[in-house]
């Protein structure tokens, strides 16, 4: 808060700038994402899945955390992105980067069409419609067996090397570099969006939908834009998943995936930029470790963790940390 030097004239621009400045912890966080290459080289495949889940959670955060819109069907976009990238590669174009772009454009289009329904409804109706769409898309993919492989999954996805040089190896080294770079670049874009005037208007919608029209905000068109952006990045995450595993399972579109990504976000802390990233890492590592101990009952531990976190840290792990830091600071001063 003390962005101003005492005695100097108040500068509102500096106050706003202080909030968007890169913090040391952020830089440490991103440097730490490189640690697995050295520390846990046998877990790089898991790491790339974490990066994908993190990007997926981040795309949902734009809706849930920043705009205050709950969605229980976000896997629709993940799945559309995954199938778009997978089908493109299966039918002869395995170049990864153009595949990513293709998939995110397709998903953005789907998001744009769906947004016309979304801006008409709110609250419970919205949650139900997102669930409904998720089931709908899942069944469509299931019934189009000839195209998607149905519940056998999409087989025969062949990816070319990145830049014609880096092959997707079986240890997941290339996959992790690739997903990490894609997630980081997406993060940079999303961070800018959140710190833009548009991002401020998203937070305004979250804080008070009634006031927004009274200050001249066209809510519907603003919401449509955020749906498209969110869908686009969810699709990108799905495409990364399809390309790095060279396979798309039907569960890419499942209700379970929609619920899981929401759990990741709530665990980590919605509306905090890093909440989805932290939540995704915790969720994926916990699943990996707990499923090793007992593959059937790991949801028990997940359920327990979720209940404890929500009761004691209603704003997620990052929200709890932020409150703790605030308390320590105010005690000191």
């Amino acid at each position: 808060m003390n962005a101003q030097t005492p005695g100097a004239a108040f500068n509102p621009q500096e106050v706003l700038r202080a909030q968007v400045r890169w913090r040391a912890l952020e830089i440490i966080f991103w440097v730490a994402t490189l640690a697995p290459f050295v520390l846990t080289p046998n877990y790089l495949i898991l790491c790339s899945q974490i990066a994908i889940a993190a990007l997926f959670a981040l795309s949902l955060d734009l809706l849930v955390g920043y705009s205050g819109i709950v969605s229980l069907g976000h896997a629709v976009y993940f799945g559309v992105g995954a199938y778009s990238a997978g089908l493109l590669a299966k039918h002869g174009w395995g170049e990864p980067i153009s595949g990513l772009l293709f998939a995110s454009v397709v998903t953005a289009l789907v998001g744009y069409l769906i947004s016309f329904i979304m801006v008409r409804i709110t609250h419970f109706a919205l949650i139900m419609v997102t669930v409904g769409l998720c089931l709908l898309f899942g069944e469509i993919a299931n019934s189009l067996h000839d195209v998607t492989g149905g519940d056998d999954g999409l087989q025969g996805v062949k990816m070319w090397s990145i830049f014609g040089i880096y092959r997707f190896d079986m240890f997941g080294r290339t996959a992790y570099v690739y997903t990490l770079v894609a997630t980081f670049l997406s993060f940079l874009v999303l961070r800018r969006i959140i710190n833009s005037p548009f991002g401020l208007s998203l937070r305004g919608m979250r804080e008070n939908q009634r006031r927004m029209p009274a200050i001249g905000v066209p809510m519907k068109s603003r919401l449509q834009v955020v749906y498209v952006i969110s869908a686009c990045f969810a699709g990108l995450a799905g495409a990364l998943s399809a390309q790095t595993t060279q396979f798309v399972a039907l569960d890419a579109l499942s209700f379970q995936r929609s619920a899981e990504v929401l759990v990741m976000l709530i665990l980590g802390g919605a509306g905090r930029l890093y909440g989805g990233l932290i939540g995704a890492a915790m969720f994926m590592v916990a699943r990996d470790q707990l499923a090793d101990m007992n593959p059937q009952y790991w949801y028990f531990w997940l359920g327990l963790l979720l209940v404890i976190v929500i009761i004691f840290l209603p704003n997620g792990i990052l929200g709890g940390l932020a409150a703790l830091i605030d308390r320590v600071r105010s005690r000191r001063s």
Binding site: P12, Q13, E14, L16, R17, V20, R192, I193, N195, S196, P197, F198, G199, L200, S201, G204, I215, G216, V217, S221, R222, V225, I229
Partner: peptide, 19 residues
């Protein structure tokens, strides 16, 4: 600032930073 940006037609801009 949000209300002012909205009036000035800047509140839909997502590629510029708020400051």
């Amino acid at each position: 600032t949000l209300a002012v940006c909205e009036r000035r037609g800047e509140a839909g801009v997502w590629w510029k930073s708020l400051p």
